[in-house]
Design a protein around this nucleic acid. Structure first.
Length: 504
DNA sequence: CTGGGGAGGGGGCCC
DNA sequence: CGGGCCCCCTCCCCA
């Protein structure tokens, strides 16, 4: 397998160098940062193992600046790809050929001009989804889905260390980094309008009234130290806006510096059915434990044509199409952005961070470009923005789960190790979560901090209160598909179906 | 059988 | 990086 993979890589490399030295993205999901081979791999184009049926002639439109060209996408599945599970190894090669498609040109133009023109695209192409599910059988979207995909080449940077691994990003310690080389200069040019920020007026405290629609950072590009290309995991729960934009950098599949080849910024606009939100997905699904639930979750992420990713590290440039799309002038972007945060996120943002920009603005000068929440340093805002972008650079070596924060990964790994370091001193119970222990101890203390406003009933779990509230509201949102009977809880529905209809 | 409630597992996110 | 909170999920018990 190794020989096979090396051969494939060598072939790709040779062809890349021969054909399009700057326009290649190589992606190997098995060689994420954990292995240190390809630290900047994006999951932008993920062909499922077993679905490597992307034809060699499936084009991706590429803006070459002065014109357009068509790239071919070739998926090469490593021999161990499928065996490695959903995150199996795969390579994506984009091979440039000539022969423009007028339709592609139109797509590029619409993207380059941004704004509503993208949404008003007269005849969206019907195209096989570029976002496919790893290991999922019906991954390829219906041909009827209207999807477009545009790859826009923006920045070429070769010959340097395209650092993408969070540990190598050159970012300082989380505590508050001295951004290397003062690369980032926060500039607050936020509009009084907050269309791009979920319409949360509370976050306008630091607005300065500039017409610039976005909170921008000026990046003084240091060719040798550009933090780019965090591997991206899309996350519908946080962002189902239709714009897909990520920066694709590769250090070269062979891990050799200087061969980095760049299809730099990839803008993929996908139009299709309204995507399910994560919450909706979960309600529709019937399992969420580590097995099936996770796969469902992945499916929701990767099969949905509206899955988007966004590499925030590039999003601060002026003239950036994404910035425009998120700007007040982009009504479509406004709508899309409203979808980014579900109501829970909105409420949480307001509750937890809504005052961040107003309470201590001097301390929290770095604003999230998506929600305007303020942070005290750049790295924190970058981590926060993963909430919106879906970037999850930290992957579990055991199960392919991915996390936006390293601490979450560390905590998750207790699932595999069985470690439960939080033991109750009143009983023998132990937990992997500190919060679980704290919650458990309410059993001993009798504390029930969650009270129902309707009947004064109290609960030790907040979720219990939430369920209980349905008693008052009469909400029954789980209906049996067989008999129509509705239930207030999914578990009730499931039990009902098991007993009445023998499903599941 | 249905539904209410207790409890634990675990991810997201912020401090 | 750990602590902590929030949230969703499932399982279980019991009236």
């Amino acid at each position: 397998m190794k020989v096979s993979r090396e051969r494939a890589e060598r072939t790709i490399r040779e062809r890349v160098l021969a054909i399009r030295p700057r326009g290649v993205k190589l992606l190997d999901r098995n060689r994420g940062m954990a292995r240190g081979h390809l630290t900047g791999g994006h999951r932008s184009f993920v062909m499922p193992a077993g679905h490597n049926k992307w034809r060699d002639d499936q084009p991706i439109t590429v803006d070459e600046g002065s014109g357009t060209s068509t790239q071919h996408v070739i998926m090469i599945e490593s021999a161990d790809g499928e065996a490695a599970g959903p995150g199996g190894s795969s390579l994506v090669k984009q091979e440039r050929t000539e022969g423009d498609d007028p339709q592609h040109s139109r797509e590029i133009q619409t993207v380059e001009t941004g704004d509503q023109s993208t949404t008003a695209m007269p005849q969206p192409r019907t195209r096989r989804s570029i976002t496919a599910v790893s290991g999922m059988p019906n991954a390829i979207k219906s041909e009827t889905d209207k999807e477009t995909l545009t790859v826009t080449k923006r920045l070429l940077h070769t010959g340097s260390d395209h650092r993408s691994d969070p540990e190598r990003l050159g970012l300082g310690p989380l505590g508050c980094p001295a951004v290397p080389g003062s690369d980032y200069l926060p500039i607050f040019r936020q509009s009084q309008r907050t269309d791009h920020s979920c319409g949360d007026g509370d976050r306008d405290a630091l607005d300065t009234g500039s017409d610039d629609p976005s909170c921008s950072y000026v990046t003084e590009m240091d060719p040798g130290n550009i933090p780019l290309g965090l591997e991206t995991q899309t996350d519908l729960s946080r962002g189902d806006w239709n714009r897909y934009r990520s920066s694709v950098f590769s250090e070269g599949c062979l891990g050799k510096k200087g061969e980095g080849l760049v299809v730099d910024e990839v803008t993929v606009k996908v139009e299709g059915d309204v995507p399910p939100t994560r919450n909706g997905d979960r309600h529709l699904g019937d399992g969420h434990s580590q097995g099936r639930g996770f796969l469902d979750y992945r499916e929701s992420l990767e099969t949905n044509p509206n899955v988007t990713t966004h590499s925030t590290l590039h999003a601060f440039r002026d003239g950036d199409p994404v910035s425009r799309s998120m700007g007040p002038s982009d009504s479509h972007g406004h709508v899309l952005f409203d979808q980014i945060l579900n109501s829970n996120d909105m409420a949480r943002t307001q509750a937890q961070g809504g005052e961040a920009t107003s309470g201590n603005s001097k301390e929290k000068r770095f604003l999230c470009m998506f929600c305007n929440k303020g942070f005290s340093c750049l790295q924190k805002v970058e981590i926060h923005q993963r909430v919106h972008t879906g970037e999850k650079p930290f992957s579990c070596t055991q199960c392919q789960m991915r996390f936006a924060q390293t601490g979450d990964l560390k905590r998750h790994q207790r699932v595999h190790t069985g470690e439960k370091p939080f033991g109750c001193h009143l009983c023998r119970a132990s937990f992997s979560h500190s919060s679980s222990l704290k919650r458990h101890q309410r059993v001993h203390t009798g504390e029930k901090p969650y009270s129902c406003p309707q009947c004064e009933k109290r609960f030790s779990h907040q979720h219990h209160l939430k369920i209980h509230l349905k008693v008052h509201t009469g909400a029954r949102s789980f209906a049996c598909t067989h008999c129509g009977k509705s239930f207030s809880e999914r578990s009730y529905l499931r039990i009902h179906q098991q007993k009445k209809h023998s499903t599941i």
